[in-house]
């Protein structure tokens, strides 16, 4: 007898439904170590083809399947079913407009990422025929920053992000610090100009939900604290 667990899945089809609802499915645990994504795939492929969600790499690096699972934002592909309490309630990431079922509209999230100039800005030309040099110590400053996968688990767990539609949010701010912390970058001034704003770094009230939510164990709150320090250092 294969053990089964109940998934209670948020459903909404904009062409049919006036309001969202939850639908229960029984998922069979056919092997140890099944992930929530395996459960969602089983539902789609064997029970209900109408369920929609995003997924791709299925190993926690592409950032497609950030979902709210039992009330916490996480990636479905690296979350073990066996470690969750039943029923497993699967919802879209909070605070984003729902396109269909578990698929949300990332437009606002990406727009905020673009706002912080998420690319290396240099004024000094690099050497023509070799790499710029960077010491291992300087490179180490990027660890915990460059690994962001833009899954939006952090920003959509942040009450300040929910409350203030203009707040850049932890993901965009972490990205800003990833570049400012890079010894090769010369764009700190123009970025800090954008971030030194009530909707920038100062909207962070160190609630720390982002740290809890990040599936890559990054620390956006710390990055935001570094941004605040940099803004103040720049003033004096």
């Amino acid at each position: 007898m294969v053990k089964t667990v109940t998934f209670s899945v948020f459903r909404y089809d904009p062409e049919k439904d006036t309001r969202p609802y939850y639908k229960d499915y029984r998922v069979e645990l056919r092997r140890p170590g099944m992930m929530v994504l395996d459960g969602l795939n089983q539902i789609r492929w064997e029970q209900d083809g109408t369920l929609a969600f995003r997924r791709s790499c299925r190993e926690g690096v592409c950032g497609s399947d950030g979902l709210n699972i039992n009330g916490v934002n996480m990636l479905a592909c690296i979350t073990h079913i066996e470690e969750l309490k039943e029923p497993i309630v699967v919802q879209p990431l909070p605070s984003m407009p729902v396109i269909k079922d578990l698929v949300v509209d990332f437009t606002d999230f990406y727009a905020k990422y673009y706002l912080v100039k998420p690319y290396l800005i240099t004024k000094t030309p690099p050497p023509s025929d070799r790499e710029r040099l960077q010491s291992p110590e300087d490179r180490k400053k990027l660890d915990g920053l460059y690994e962001c996968i833009l899954c939006a688990c952090c920003s959509t767990s942040c009450p300040s992000f929910w409350a203030d539609p203009n707040y850049l949010g932890p993901a965009a701010l972490l990205k800003a610090w990833r570049f400012i912390a890079d010894t090769r970058d010369e764009g700190a001034d123009e970025r800090l100009e954008i971030i030194n704003d009530r909707d920038g770094a100062w909207r962070c009230h160190t609630i720390l939900n982002c740290v809890e939510a990040c599936p890559k164990q990054l620390n956006p709150t710390e990055a935001i604290a570094e941004l605040k320090k940099a803004i103040i250092h720049r003033k004096f």
Partner: peptide, 20 residues
């Protein structure tokens, strides 16, 4: 092409002398 990537900002790991 690898050097171009570094110039674009790719965060390569580094050797003690700072090279890729």
């Amino acid at each position: 092409v690898v050097i171009e990537l570094e110039h674009m900002g790719m965060p390569f790991s580094r050797l003690q002398d700072g090279k890729i």
